[in-house]
Amino acid sequence: MKLTDKAEEILETLWVELIEKKKEKCDVTLVKREEALYELIRGGYTRMTEDKIALSEKGTEAARQCIRRHRLAERLMVDVLDFKKGLVHETSCNFEHFLHKGIDENICTLLGHPKTCPHGRPIPEGRCCKESRKHVAKLIVPLPELEVNRSAVIAYLHTHDREALRKLIAMGALPQTEIVLLQRFPTILFQLGKSQFAVDDELASHIYVRRL
């Protein structure tokens, strides 16, 4: 059964209070009359004793997912949609509820598996984060960040400088081409097919490569 938005918000508060702040129990006088609270109790997410409340195992996992979606939404607002930090909370409160299972992993991958929200609080890890750690690092990097002598394939060129783009095209630095970074200093040297080219850092930073 899908939880209501209000119930999800209560779970988030409980996560912050009980898990992050490590309180024994949480006072729920504020939400006592909310229908959502009973929704959570009925669903077996929380246990109630007098005016205090605790998370069940099921509730802890659900709260973890809610908090993760919320903070990912905040990251998305700030990093991609360019919101100001102060405005983020409210908008992401509405937005997070759309990020259901699967979508949150896509967003998380898109953002490069961020560890914290814009306010510096930790984002609980998803399955995708664990998997990406097996790959050690980000999949696509600008050429200057590639390890020396590691082969890679050009994923795309990204630049607003048309002259630079034309130079790269003339060199044949195009998607699907295999590329090996040979040297980083004093000038970037790379192997492209059977030719070698030397380019400065700026030009090289327009080439994005995927490690092989």
Binding site: E163, A164, K167, M171, T187, L189, S195, Q196, F197, A198, V199, D200, E202, L203
Partner: peptide
């Protein structure tokens, strides 16, 4: 603008 550098190394 700052000069840009690329050259083929034969």
């Amino acid at each position: 603008r700052q000069a840009s550098f690329y050259i083929e190394v034969p």
